[in-house]
């Protein structure tokens, strides 16, 4: 259930050239300035954007490269896109059940499992609601349930908490942490918030200009950011203070 990727890709002005490994069960938090290619990477891994060269292996299966290119449904990935992208014409429970229905499960079984996930994420009461009638926090949980219900080998979360206000962010982060820990697949989380990084990441990678400029365990990166971007990000949340100097103060 791991990810191994070495790829070049290009979309508009941003081009990627990087190598990435995420072990099964591991959560990698990817940070980087706007335009560094984070969403491009997510789309390339999901199969929504063809890579120009390299190879991507998910759970031991070559999904792209060497003449192979599996479409998104056959990769064992699930994407929780920026802005959540809940299907506006389906109820919350139908949103969550979508992935199981698409993979051929019967309606009753898919619904039952979807309700189970909604209960696990503590929002069973919104099952029949349309997405337009969900609060930001509820919508975020529905989107999370929809992505994880298929037990993907690679889970891609593109700024999963960015739509939330401060009050719901903390509890949502705790729930997200618990959920991620329970999943056996590889998980990639994109964020701009150092608190997400500190709470969710087993490992951290910093993407700048399409390249990974820093990579390490969470502890390593918290102790020694190594890049100006990560340093500034940590300082903003008071997560970094070196004895030698007061950064950016």
């Amino acid at each position: 259930m791991s990810l191994q990727a070495r790829l070049q890709a290009r979309r508009g002005p941003s081009s990627l050239d990087l190598e990435l490994r995420i072990a099964g069960g591991e959560t990698l938090v990817l940070v980087g300035p706007n335009g560094s290619g984070k969403s491009t990477l997510v789309d390339a891994l999901a199969g929504l954007l063809p890579i120009t060269s390299g190879r991507v292996e998910i759970a031991g299966t070559l999904v792209e490269g060497e003449g192979v290119r599996l479409p998104p449904p056959e990769r064992g990935v699930a994407l929780m896109p920026q802005g959540l992208a809940l299907f506006p014409h389906m109820s919350a429970v139908d949103n969550v059940a979508y992935g199981l229905r698409a993979r051929g499960h019967g309606e009753a079984e898919a619904r039952a499992k979807a309700l189970e996930w909604l209960a696990r994420l503590e929002i069973a009461e919104v099952a029949e609601r349309s997405p337009s009638r969900l609060s930001g926090g509820q919508a975020q949980r529905v989107a999370l349930a929809r992505a994880v219900i298929t037990e993907p080998s690679l889970l891609l979360l593109d700024e999963p908490l960015s739509a939330l206000d401060v009050s719901s962010r903390r509890s949502a982060r705790r729930l997200l942490h618990r959920t991620l820990r329970s999943l056996p697949g590889a998980k990639l989380v994109i964020t701009h918030d150092a608190r997400d990084l500190a709470a969710l990441g087993d490992r951290v990678a910093v993407l700048e200009g399409g390249r990974i400029v820093r990579e390490g365990s969470r502890a390593e990166c918290l102790a020694d950011p190594g890049t100006g971007y990560l340093l500034a990000m940590l300082c903003e949340q008071g997560l970094y203070s070196s004895g030698e100097q007061e950064p950016l103060s």
Partner: peptide, 20 residues
């Protein structure tokens, strides 16, 4: 992104067209 999300959730092109 709605269609992209559906595709990664396992829906083939026809299913995306029909359901989304």
């Amino acid at each position: 992104r709605l269609e992209a999300a559906a595709a990664t959730l396992g829906a083939g092109r026809l299913r995306v067209l029909r359901t989304i």
